[in-house]
Simulated assay, not measured.
Amino acid sequence: MVNAAGKFGPYSQPGPAQPAPVAAVRDAHLLPGRGQTGSELVRSRVALRVRLKSVSPGDRLPDAGVLAEELGISEITVRRALEGMCQDGLLDRRRGRAGGTFVAPDWDAVVALMHDTDTAAALDAFHLLLECGLVAHGTGEVPDGRLDGLRALVDEMDLSDDPARLRELETRFHLDLAEALGGAGIREFAADLLGRQCLVLPAPEPALVRARNRCHADLLTELRRGAMDPAVRAVKAHQHARPDASPT
């Protein structure tokens, strides 16, 4: 099945599932700098797969045709993007019967060389804007039960000691939050944004994830109460959370 965001152009899926106040995020030019090219989309989605543990360093990626169908872009664009990632050291190309395109074993070390403070700050600010808009519009409109999965992620983060698992769970929280408040199309948009962040922003330390998880918990509490202003404050507190500080 073709990804809806790609089928209709970046973030332009129509339909009632997307609330009006966040409809503007469907315009790709609103992303920091400019909208992603097809090649950049591939890079961000591969990075997101690694963060979510869909693939790990050393694992084989799906074939270019499968990725092209998932993303709604041409196979040749995917092939060129994967070749570029091989040149950058993010991926390895292997030939032969057991060949294919693999996540480089030293993925983390290569990504660390790509960190970009300015781009990371712009993406972080845009993500804050997106979530504040979603929360402001969705408070009081979330059906019973829709936040249960998010609460389960918060509870699991509280119990986990594994750094990679904590980062995975936090990323899943923000993806699921986007879908709970904005629908499947907004989730696709958030996936592109979070994937880009994975490439330019250092992976958070466990203590930071736990500090931000207190903000996650506060956000869910306020969403259940239908309290918009405190919910928005919880989103903002997440961005400024520190390992030794409680959200305010």
Results as ranks from 00 to 15, higher is better:
166 L>M: 09
174 H>Q: 12
165 R>I: 05
173 F>S: 02
163 P>N: 03
176 D>M: 11
201 L>M: 13
163 P>W: 04
199 L>R: 11
176 D>G: 10
182 G>V: 04
194 L>G: 01
161 D>K: 12
201 L>C: 11
184 A>T: 15
162 D>I: 00
162 D>V: 09
201 L>E: 15
183 G>P: 04
177 L>P: 00
198 C>Y: 06
163 P>H: 04
175 L>E: 08
202 P>V: 05
162 D>C: 09
173 F>C: 02
188 E>A: 15
189 F>Y: 15
159 L>C: 09
184 A>I: 13
202 P>F: 07
203 A>V: 10
193 L>C: 06
196 R>K: 07
181 L>G: 03
158 D>L: 10
156 E>Q: 14
167 R>D: 10
186 I>Y: 00
205 E>M: 11
173 F>G: 00
171 T>D: 07
203 A>I: 02
191 A>W: 01
186 I>P: 02
161 D>N: 14
191 A>K: 05
194 L>W: 02
188 E>Y: 10
165 R>H: 12
157 M>R: 15
205 E>R: 15
185 G>E: 14
171 T>E: 00
203 A>K: 08
179 E>P: 07
156 E>L: 14
178 A>W: 02
181 L>F: 05
173 F>R: 03
204 P>C: 07
160 S>N: 01
185 G>C: 09
199 L>N: 01
167 R>G: 08
158 D>F: 05
160 S>K: 00
176 D>K: 12
178 A>Y: 03
161 D>F: 09
192 D>W: 10
189 F>P: 02
169 L>Y: 08
201 L>I: 02
161 D>W: 12
197 Q>C: 10
194 L>S: 08
183 G>F: 05
191 A>P: 03
197 Q>W: 01
203 A>R: 14
172 R>L: 13
181 L>S: 04
187 R>T: 01
169 L>W: 04
182 G>Q: 03
192 D>M: 08
156 E>T: 12
185 G>K: 08
194 L>N: 06
167 R>Y: 01
195 G>L: 06
167 R>C: 12
173 F>V: 00
181 L>N: 03
174 H>A: 13
161 D>C: 10
175 L>P: 01
198 C>M: 14
179 E>D: 13
157 M>S: 01
164 A>K: 08
174 H>P: 01
189 F>R: 11
178 A>F: 07
195 G>A: 02
202 P>G: 07
163 P>S: 09
201 L>Y: 07
180 A>M: 00
